[in-house]
Amino acid sequence: METTETFERIVRAEFTPKSTYLNTASNSLLPARTVAALQEAALLRAEGRPLTPLYEDVEACRAAYARLAGVPAGRVALGASVAAHTGVIAASLPAGAEVLTADDDFTSVLNPFHVRGDLLVRTVPLERIAESVRPGTALVAVSAAQSADGRIADLPALRAAARAHGARTYVDFSQAAGWLPMDAGAYDFTASVSFKWLMGPHGTAFLTVPEDFGGLRPVLAGWTAGERPWESCYGPVDELALSARRFDLTHALFTLAGLRRSLDLVEELGVSAIHAHDVALADRFRTGLADLGHKPVPAPGSAIVSVPGLGSRQPELSEAGIEISDRAGNLRASFHLYNTTADVDRLLDALSG
């Protein structure tokens, strides 16, 4: 656990934003150590040097994410997107299976189930998802924190309801991993992208699976899915990896070279300290909004704050150097470790004007 002084010193050394950046729910800033690693990776290619260090980064990222997720590294697969991971899960379900989802959840969590065409996809309000699990529900799929407004799912209640009815669980931690403590082992499948709260580049997404793979078939398996990939990269793979690596897609080596350093930073600071920092800023913004007469979407404990009716102000705020999102007419602010109370107050001052 870092002290507040050490936390701030480390953050100041890594980030030099040129704007008031409050848009991590879209894309994070990159730490300086990550930018340096990306540059070095590019030089390896440009100068024709061996790429061995980049393959070492692949397994370092898998291990680091496993520690954050609270599962063994053998349960972590590396892919390109949450949508691809969702597609693998969707492909494993029998025709007619019921998938329970939340209203207006992020498309990557939902769409692969819909495009199957032969699944029963049932949608309910997020607040009712646990109580809506019923006999015959095959899978419950939900984001840990909603992209549009930051609402946090009641995951313990969801897990209990799913277990009571024999349903599997799939949780997307894309808007949570890096600031909200995770326990991926409590769910059958979880996923997360790398470029939001984990502060990595685009191009990689993680998938966690049960020890027995939960009935998934590696329908996207390529050469990296082999137990000995360098020995089975021609013709069909005779032996798939004995771990979750059988679900790997071809690795985005540059992304993983940078992401390794971003994950190092998350571990160095600690998710609990990042959580406390992020939520304190979000709460400060909520208090300031109330003073201005605005009522955000209720999302207690979230690092994301969404304000109905103010989305149209996003362009003018961007012109003023405050980066923030317009989501379905709502103004969405998202706070991360590189933000300060001064950032919050500058946004509130701009809104008061």
Rank of each mutant, 00 (worst) to 15 (best):
R260K: 15
R260T: 12
R261M: 05
R261Y: 06
R261V: 01
S262W: 01
S262R: 00
S262I: 00
S262K: 00
S262Y: 02
L263F: 04
L263E: 04
L263A: 03
L263D: 05
D264W: 12
L265R: 02
L265H: 04
E267V: 02
E267D: 14
E267T: 04
E267N: 08
E267G: 13
E268A: 14
E268P: 10
G270W: 07
G270R: 07
G270T: 04
G270C: 05
V271R: 06
A276K: 12
A276G: 15
A276M: 12
H277K: 09
H277I: 07
D278T: 09
D278C: 14
D278H: 09
V279R: 10
A280Q: 08
A280G: 10
A280S: 12
L281M: 04
L281H: 02
A282C: 02
A282H: 01
D283F: 00
D283L: 00
D283W: 00
R284Y: 03
F285H: 01
F285R: 01
F285A: 01
F285E: 01
R286A: 04
T287A: 10
T287E: 11
T287P: 00
G288A: 03
G288Q: 03
G288E: 05
L289Q: 04
L289P: 09
L289T: 02
A290I: 01
A290G: 13
A290R: 11
A290D: 14
D291L: 08
L292M: 04
G293D: 08
G293A: 06
H294I: 00
K295I: 13
P296S: 10
P296I: 03
V297A: 07
V297S: 06
V297K: 05
P298G: 03
P298R: 01
A299Y: 07
P300E: 15
P300T: 09
P300L: 11
P300F: 11
P300Q: 11
A303I: 02
I304F: 10
V305F: 07
V305M: 08
S306E: 10
V307Y: 09
V307S: 11
P308W: 12
G309Q: 11
G309V: 09
G309E: 13
L310G: 08
L310E: 10
L310S: 09
G311K: 04
G311T: 03
G311A: 08
S312E: 15
R313C: 06
R313Q: 11
R313H: 09
R313N: 06
Q314A: 15
P315L: 13
P315V: 11
E316G: 14
E316M: 12
L317D: 04
L317I: 05
L317F: 10
S318M: 15
S318N: 15
E319W: 14
E319D: 15
E319G: 15
A320G: 09
A320I: 10
A320K: 14
I322V: 12
I322W: 08
I322R: 06
E323S: 12
E323W: 13
I324H: 05
I324E: 05
I324N: 05
I324Y: 07
I324L: 07
D326P: 02
D326R: 03
D326H: 03
R327T: 06
R327N: 07
R327G: 01
R327K: 13
A328N: 11
A328Y: 08
A328E: 13
G329W: 02
G329C: 02
G329I: 01
N330W: 09
L331I: 02
L331W: 03
L331F: 05
R332C: 01
R332G: 00
R332I: 00
R332L: 03
A333M: 03
S334R: 06
F335Y: 01
F335T: 01
F335K: 00
